[in-house]
Amino acid sequence: MKHYEVEILDAKTREKLCFLDKVEPHATIAEIKNLFTKTHPQWYPARQSLRLDPKGKSLKDEDVLQKLPVGTTATLYFRDLGAQISWVTVFLTEYAGPLFIYLLFYFRVPFIYGHKYDFTSSRHTVVHLACICHSFHYIKRLLETLFVHRFSHGTMPLRNIFKNCTYYWGFAAWMAYYINHPLYTPPTYGAQQVKLALAIFVICQLGNFSIHMALRDLRPAGSKTRKIPYPTKNPFTWLFLLVSCPNYTYEVGSWIGFAIMTQCLPVALFSLVGFTQMTIWAKGKHRSYLKEFRDYPPLRMPIIPFLL
């Protein structure tokens, strides 16, 4: 059985960083990364991007050496992705923050609204209902991160945790300040508006959870398998008939419901920014589905049925 020789060059300087002799033909890129780490321990596998061309796409960890368009002496180019952190850690951090930050404003801890309001309670029912909904949303997200989601990528750049936390924590503080303010004004149409908004919120939260469970069942634990998601017997998953990412559709719907319930401008802005970002993600995933699966359902749109 022939063996391969693998040289790894710096993608920027073309400097030879490592030479691997007698590499098995069936070795994966993940195994080559581990061998590279032995000579350069500062670059652990998650930091490494190996590619066939200095400006090309990163090879997948599961790619097999003998199936790549290389000879028995293969040249790979290395790029440092920077310090990495696990997706689970990032999600837990960015979701735990809003949960606790919101509660600080809800309980009106000292130095927020003035001494005479310390630890007082709002007289408006919608304020307490909003706290329950907000807390439920982020507790749900935390539990899904721990027990439901299966991540195709193990890590992301460390800098992302600061960007994500600034976004989630900042908006949580902004909306919580106004919703729990002693001078907060309840919704214009009173109980009817709150009940309608609560119904929207609850339905969308159930829908979002149902989609996450359906997506989880598509991917076996520990794998990166991708399949076309289809509706199940659960009615909340029937939205798969019309959109590629109904989890985002339901998520946006939840925040629209919360915005109607609280009639709070920061919540509306958070919903708008979230919708914009999720639309970008949904379009990317939709394109990926179309590219990977020739039999992908043609009627589906990325996030909004028939429109977007």
Score class of each variant (00 low, 15 high):
Lys2Glu: 11
Glu5Val: 11
Val6Trp: 01
Glu7Gln: 12
Glu7Asn: 05
Glu7Lys: 13
Ile8Lys: 08
Ile8Glu: 08
Leu9Thr: 01
Asp10Ser: 09
Lys12Leu: 13
Lys12Phe: 02
Glu15Arg: 04
Cys18Trp: 05
Leu20Met: 05
Leu20Glu: 05
Asp21Asn: 11
Glu24Lys: 09
Glu24Asp: 05
Ile29Lys: 02
Ala30Val: 10
Ile32Trp: 02
Lys33Gly: 02
Phe36Ile: 00
Thr37Pro: 05
Lys38Arg: 12
His40Thr: 02
His40Gln: 13
Gln42Asn: 15
Trp43Pro: 05
Pro45Ser: 12
Gln48His: 08
Ser49Arg: 00
Leu50Asp: 11
Asp53His: 14
Asp53Ala: 14
Pro54Phe: 03
Ser58Gly: 14
Leu59Phe: 01
Lys60Ala: 14
Lys60Asp: 01
Lys67Leu: 13
Pro69Leu: 08
Val70Met: 06
Gly71Phe: 10
Thr75Val: 08
Tyr77Gln: 05
Ile85Met: 02
Leu92Met: 07
Thr93Val: 12
Ala96Asn: 14
Ala96Pro: 12
Ala96Lys: 13
Gly97Cys: 13
Phe100Leu: 12
Ile101Val: 09
Tyr102Leu: 02
Leu103Gln: 11
Phe105Met: 00
Arg108Gln: 11
Pro110Arg: 12
Pro110Gly: 15
Tyr113Val: 02
Asp118Cys: 14
Asp118Arg: 04
Thr120Trp: 14
Thr125Val: 05
Val126Ile: 01
His128Glu: 13
His128Ala: 10
His128Ser: 13
Ala130His: 15
Cys131Ala: 10
Cys131Trp: 02
Cys131Gly: 13
His134Gly: 06
Tyr138Gln: 15
Lys140Arg: 10
Leu146Asp: 02
His149Phe: 04
His149Lys: 00
Gly154Ala: 05
Pro157His: 02
Thr166Ser: 04
Tyr167Ser: 03
Tyr168Ser: 01
Gly170Asn: 02
Phe171Met: 13
Ala173Arg: 05
Trp174Asn: 04
Tyr177Gly: 06
Asn180Ser: 07
Asn180Lys: 03
His181Asn: 01
Pro187Met: 02
Tyr189Pro: 13
Ala191His: 09
Ala191Thr: 09
Val194Tyr: 15
Leu196Arg: 07
Ala199Asn: 15
Phe201Tyr: 03
Phe201Lys: 05
Gly207Glu: 05
Ile211Arg: 00
Ile211Val: 10
Ala214Asn: 15
Leu215Pro: 02
Ser223Phe: 05
Lys224Trp: 10
Pro231Gly: 01
Lys233Ile: 14
Pro235Phe: 00
Phe236Val: 02
Thr237Lys: 07
Trp238Phe: 01
Leu239Arg: 10
Leu239Thr: 03
Leu239Val: 07
Leu239Pro: 11
Leu239Ala: 08
Leu242Pro: 06
Ser244Ile: 03
Asn247His: 10
Thr249Lys: 15
Tyr250Arg: 02
Ser254Phe: 06
Trp255Thr: 09
Gly257His: 14
Phe258Ser: 04
Thr262Met: 07
Thr262Arg: 01
Phe270Ile: 11
Ser271Asp: 06
Ser271Pro: 10
Leu272His: 12
Val273Met: 12
Phe275Pro: 00
Gln277Pro: 04
Met278Arg: 05
Ile280Asn: 12
Trp281Lys: 14
Trp281Arg: 03
Lys283Met: 13
His286Asp: 09
Ser288Pro: 05
Ser288Gly: 11
Leu290Phe: 14
Leu290Met: 08
Lys291Trp: 03
Lys291Phe: 12
Pro297Leu: 02
Pro302Ala: 09
Ile304Trp: 11
Ile304Arg: 01
Pro305Tyr: 14
Pro305Thr: 03
